[in-house]
């Protein structure tokens, strides 16, 4: 247990001239659910993608379970943003889930009955068994997100990285996904998710990593998810009503009934 699932040192990522993530340090605690939060354009997704080698980094060191990323690929699962792919692609739900088996099946190995059973189990775990042979474009947004989660489950990883898994999904899907993530946590696996909805952070997550290009705070929800750190990261962009709802100890004058969700 000595090696953190993920340790990032001095990570800088740049799109063009200005850095999207600047000098980020991060240590992900094992067996916990950590949310990466921050305002739009704060580099949350970029941080995740740079850690995974999807976008190139200018500088920085990444250690996964105490070793180089390339040696630990098999221990990482990734759920990209749903909007990042073309859902009109000619593929069925079960084919997508089987993509998660790639490292186990290999380049030209055959899918055995056991592999297929694993893929079916993963689909069942997200409540999508009935949709196995559907073309993925016929699914609702929430169902597509669950298929992506099932694919990650098929990877059988120890560290799950998710990019906004709750973005634009229905309430039933949100519940289904959080249940799966919590069951993964109960199995001792580590979860790291870019998360947008501040109001659910204390319910869903154990730890937070607050970032606005550079890290602002890191720790348990009690330590790092405070009015102070949020204001530091979001500045004026945070609806005052939301802060009041999150931290009722400091009541303010007129709080709107619903928090304005950053879009």
């Amino acid at each position: 247990m000595g090696d953190a699932p993920l340790r990032v040192r001095g990570l800088t990522v740049s799109y063009g001239a200005s850095p999207a993530v600047f000098s980020a340090d991060m240590t992900v605690a094992p067996g916990a659910m950590t949310a990466i939060i921050g305002p739009n354009g704060a580099g949350k997704s970029t941080l995740l993608k740079a850690v995974l080698g999807i976008v190139p980094r200018v500088s920085g060191q990444i250690e996964v379970f105490g070793a180089a990323l390339e040696r630990q690929r098999a221990r990482i699962a990734y759920v990209p943003q749903r909007a990042s792919v073309d859902w009109d692609f000619p593929t069925r739900v079960i084919d997508v889930v089987e993509m998660g088996l790639y490292r186990r099946v290999g380049l030209i190995g055959r899918l055995t009955r056991q592999h297929r059973a694993t893929a079916g189990d993963c689909l069942a775990r997200v409540g999508m068994s009935d949709f196995a042979t559907r073309q993925i474009g016929q699914l609702s947004g929430g169902q597509q997100q669950r298929v992506f989660l099932a694919r990650a489950l098929a990877q059988g990883a120890d560290l799950y990285m998710l990019d906004e898994p709750f973005a634009g999904v229905d309430a039933a899907t949100e519940k289904a996904i959080i249940d799966v993530l919590k069951s993964l946590k109960d199995e001792g696996r580590t979860i790291l998710a870019v998360h947008h909805d501040l109001s659910t952070v204390p319910d869903y997550f154990d730890r937070v990593f607050v970032i606005n290009k550079s890290p602002v705070a890191e720790g348990t929800v009690a330590q790092a998810f405070t009015q102070d750190t949020l204001q530091q990261a979001y500045g004026g962009r945070l609806a005052t009503g939301l802060l009041d709802q999150l931290f009722p100890a400091t009541p303010a004058a007129a709080a709107p009934a619903f928090p304005a969700r950053p879009s």
């Binding site: 390339e70 690929r73 990482i76 990734y78 990042s84 593929t91 993509m99 490292r103």
Partner: peptide, 14 residues
Amino acid sequence: AISTFDEGFARTLG
């Protein structure tokens, strides 16, 4: 097939 469908995911698989 994987990288045509989802290039980012393909990269995470190595």
